[in-house]
């Protein structure tokens, strides 16, 4: 079971208590009625869907109920860090990043195993 650190409970808790809540740090345009359709689509619909390090919002819905931000590696599913909502995007500590990249190489991805299957 994956343990996720809640920055409000200051505790590592089971993934069952959490809900994913989309990409983090998406700022709502200030004059939203004045922006073009393309700009609105960019803000409202388009997400980066990055492979590797990604910043997401999570909610400790069955615990303290708070939303918070997390830096997560989408390849290894490893949480690199979590921090309170409202804080600016936090840099991931270098050591954690290295560990995550090393782990990434050993993770069995579809791309990596596809060749064997054929």
């Amino acid at each position: 079971m994956l343990l996720i650190h809640c920055p409000y409970c200051e505790d590592d808790r089971s993934e069952l208590e959490f809900r994913w809540a989309g990409e983090a740090h998406i700022a709502r345009p200030e004059a939203i009625s004045e922006i073009s359709d393309e700009e609105f689509a960019e803000y409202f619909f388009l997400r980066n869907n990055e492979k590797g390090l990604t910043y997401e919002r999570w909610r400790h819905i069955h615990g303290c109920g708070r939303f918070f931000n997390a830096a997560r590696d989408t390849v290894s599913d490893r949480f690199l860090m979590t921090y309170k909502a409202g804080l600016p995007k936090q840099p991931v500590p270098v050591a954690d990043k290295m560990a995550a990249t090393a782990e990434e190489k050993t993770v069995e991805t579809w791309e990596a195993t596809e060749g064997d299957a054929r």
């Binding site: 409970c9 808790r13 089971s14 069952l16 208590e17 069955h62 615990g63 303290c64 109920g65």
Partner: peptide, 10 residues
């Protein structure tokens, strides 16, 4: 104390 899950309920 804590809010948490027990089986499928909170």
């Amino acid at each position: 104390c804590s809010r948490t899950l027990f089986g499928k309920i909170e």
